[in-house]
Design a protein around this nucleic acid. Structure first.
Lengths: 222, 222
DNA sequence: GTAGCTAGATAGTGGCAGTATCTTCCTAGG
DNA sequence: CCTAGGAAGATACTGCCACTATCTAGCTAC
């Protein structure tokens, strides 16, 4: 199909398709002439994936490119999973607010917390994993707000995270088609986060209602 | 303290403090004269919270304002929790890609999926909850990618979400100080999401390693 | 042979989150 | 009393991002 058809099929403007190509998010169509190219079903699928990653996953164009590059280069499920996991942005930027002395204390406490957690969970985590650094940064930030986790709390969350990861892996592995597998991994890893977050919010909402059982929860929405 | 001191204490530029005030994220200092105002510890705390919400929570200025407004107006823990929960942005924007006929089918399937889930979980969810809509939209998007959850899967995730919400509520309730409670609720609700996500990624990483047990996972990082 | 695409390059737009400047005015030190 | 130095508030500017539009060739199918 021609680019105009691809545009009509997917609802993505021609200019945007060209933009995604320039940004390295999708391959060019197969050129049939100097000024004409043929696009196929894989382009439709790729556009859908791009849209899902950016809108549902909230990824930037750059992050989306990283993820898609990882998918394209993946030669195995595991490398796809790993690459995708690392390519996904971690929403942590530090805001070093004040107190040099307290900062040092906070920093080491957070680091110890993460190390203890990994030990307690018996996780096979490479020290180079960006997630370790990310988690440390997040915990530092919470400490600055005097909202540190109780030691046991973090482990409790981690246990649940482990169960979730188990479900994730099952889901990712359920797809036998090796062609689509890397893509499936992306979807499971990158796009179930918002679903999980929404489920958590719904569950929170339910818990709040149950715990007060008849209170003035009706005002919660305003 | 004067605004310049507040700036020095928190590391936030004076211009930014003024910007936050303009955007309604924090109250003005107590004016001691037409061109002089006094800032206190509460302003330091508020700046910390703003920074945490925007950097760690990834909220926009507008979303941060909504959340903080909810906190300031909350007269009870429950209303604070509810308001914060609703004020937090749900990362779902629809991208209606193609096929009118398939769209209708996808839409109703997703709606039924959510309704079934809520029934299965016995959740007390008001039909007006934006989370319901958000979840429906997210599931629609996944269906478009042919990545729908197996019916049981969604419930399994929801069960885990319930456990997480339980921990969240415990954490939020652990703070007796009613002054700080609404703020604590914000922290627990808005800022544990990235922590949980990071834990999930660490757990995924561990699972991948365990499941292949000796495979070529070393390349996962590149 | 020409109307209607197309590719690729370049430039422009709108929103967001600050950052800088400008004016007016107050305060503290001498 | 006078003046240096902030500070308040308003307005303007900047940089980044994700598109979006325009422009220049160059096919190609009727």
């Amino acid at each position: 199909m021609k680019i105009s058809e691809l545009s009509r099929t997917t609802g993505v403007p021609v200019a945007s398709i060209k933009y995604f190509r320039r940004q390295g998010l999708m391959p060019a169509g197969k050129a049939t002439a100097a000024t004409l190219a043929e696009y196929g079903q894989e382009h439709v699928q790729r556009l859908r994936l791009i849209k899902a990653l950016t809108t549902l996953g909230g990824l930037s164009i750059a992050a989306t490119r990283d993820v898609l590059t990882a998918v394209d280069q993946a030669h195995s499920t595991e490398s796809a999973l790993g690459a995708v996991s690392y390519a996904l942005p971690v929403p942590v930027a530090e805001s070093p607010v004040g107190d040099a002395g307290r900062e040092a204390e906070i920093g080491s406490a957070a680091e110890a917390e993460v190390a203890d957690l990994i030990a307690a969970m018996d996780w096979q985590t490479p020290s180079t994993s960006p997630h370790v650094e990310g988690l440390t940064a997040a915990l530092r930030e919470l400490r600055r707000l005097d909202a540190a986790y109780e030691p046991g709390d973090l482990v409790a969350y981690a246990e649940l995270a482990r169960s979730i990861a188990g479900l994730d892996l099952d889901r990712a592995a359920a797809f036998g088609d090796p062609e689509a597998l890397a893509e499936q991994a992306v979807i499971v890893f990158a796009l179930s986060a918002p679903v999980l977050e929404l489920l958590r919010r719904l569950a929170q909402e339910d818990q709040v209602r149950r715990r007060i059982a008849g209170g003035d929860t009706g005002t919660g929405a305003e």
